[in-house]
Design a protein around this nucleic acid. Structure first.
Lengths: 232, 232
DNA sequence: CATTCGCTTCGATCCCGCCCGAAGCATTTA
DNA sequence: TAAATGCTTCGGGCGGGATCGAAGCGAATG
């Protein structure tokens, strides 16, 4: 009982520094960012950013992919993303309505990428639709799985045959798809590998587009048609 | 996009202070603790504890119930508990196996109270059993609800008729019962009002007993019989 | 090989916040 | 009323860590 708490406080302290917090918030969009990019985004010098990023690495909150003379950072895994979303839930708890109804927050409330999957109103709608249409079903143990006739829906969503086969192969893996709480909607939305592939696909098809922050998602005109068909 | 992050970092910084972190970990057990009790538990003077508790209140992480010359603190709500559990998940992520397999962690891994509901192996088992026995079912929207014939199971669990009626009345409310991730088991367990009442009942019946930390739960001999019947 | 670019390490400064002693306030008990 | 208990506020000392300038290192570019 004594040993976990120091580390408990330690992880929190790493998140607690304002510049690091802003970096993590940026990375919550799901895309990799270089060290310099992050430094500029939070208005600090590269050398300061460097020490911060070293600490984020030490704490295991971010992962590093070195490429030439660039160093690209992403969140370490879904658990970290989950923590940051849970923190957001508490941060915004006091006045969810008033804050989310300001014009600046509209896009973020409508749709955003959370780590790598779809969240916000559209994320909740996606989960409801896939359950209602029996693309996803609850197994005996209560876990969510891909149904027998999910292939039809996936074809409608313009997935290729090979992509569908690949998804069905992965469907048995742990954490392929599961529900998790949405902090703005206070309803559940979809996460996991499956949800990630869906979002990637929607962006590739040009149905959703990420804004400059990499967090908010806008529906394009063809996206409106495609998604209203898919989500009923 | 600019305004939430300062508060984001602020909340993290409140958790980041070691003494406050330990207080929060204690309160995660679900029971109310007085200011002095918390001060002694984390080995600091009352005046230092006082300033820490004031900050926890400011941040909205704890709630206060004044009673005579005592001041009792609890976690503010389930969102805060959820945040702390998500933080634990990241904290323990690196070496889940090695850490949880040490003797000191055995009881905590087996069963513990998380805010006010049952977590750990027993918590996961509880969820599996209630779903398998159709005490809880997934509704059309995928949300968890009390089934028609849950009453039979509740009677077996020695709930009184009035308690059962009260539960069924509350079953329509938001957040009555829902699944959430367990950090030690990496499986889902039950949370919400329903889960809280179950745990309270099990403790009242003498089937489970809280240890001095208020976190770990031990099964008593009659509890072994009762729970193995209820959970199959 | 020399230069530029991205990033890191070192060193010095400075500020924020944790801490406890002392004093003060409110409630309960004698 | 007086004394004890639980808790808070004030003041000053102190340490940890955030910051940036300067210098160093490795990779790409010419």
């Amino acid at each position: 009982m004594r040993s976990p708490e120091p580390r408990f406080a330690y992880i929190a302290s790493v998140i607690a520094e304002p510049s690091r917090a802003r970096m993590l918030a940026l990375l919550l969009g799901g895309e990799a960012r270089s060290a310099g990019e992050l430094a500029r985004a939070v208005s600090i010098t590269p050398q300061t950013a460097s020490t911060h990023l070293a600490q984020l690495l030490d704490a295991g909150l971010v992962k590093l992919r070195a490429q030439g003379r660039h160093r690209y950072f992403t969140l370490a895994d879904a658990d970290v993303a989950h923590l940051l979303e849970a923190l957001s839930l508490v941060v915004e708890r006091d006045d969810v309505r008033s804050r989310w109804d300001t014009p600046a927050y509209k896009p973020l409330k409508y749709a955003r990428s959370c780590y790598c999957h779809l969240a916000g109103e559209l994320g909740v709608r996606q989960r409801d639709a896939l359950l209602a249409q029996r693309v996803l079903v609850h197994g005996a143990d209560g876990a969510l799985t891909l149904s027998q006739d999910a292939a039809k829906w996936l074809r409608n969503a313009r997935f290729g045959d090979d992509a569908i086969a690949s998804l069905q192969r992965d469907a048995t893996k742990k954490r392929f798809v599961y529900s998790c709480m949405d902090w703005s909607e206070r309803r559940e939305h979809l996460a996991g590998v499956f949800a990630t592939r869906l979002l990637t696909h929607f962006v590739e098809m040009g149905w959703l587009r990420k804004d400059k922050t990499g967090r908010a998602l806008a529906t394009t005109p063809p996206g409106v048609r495609a998604l209203s068909m898919l989500f009923g």
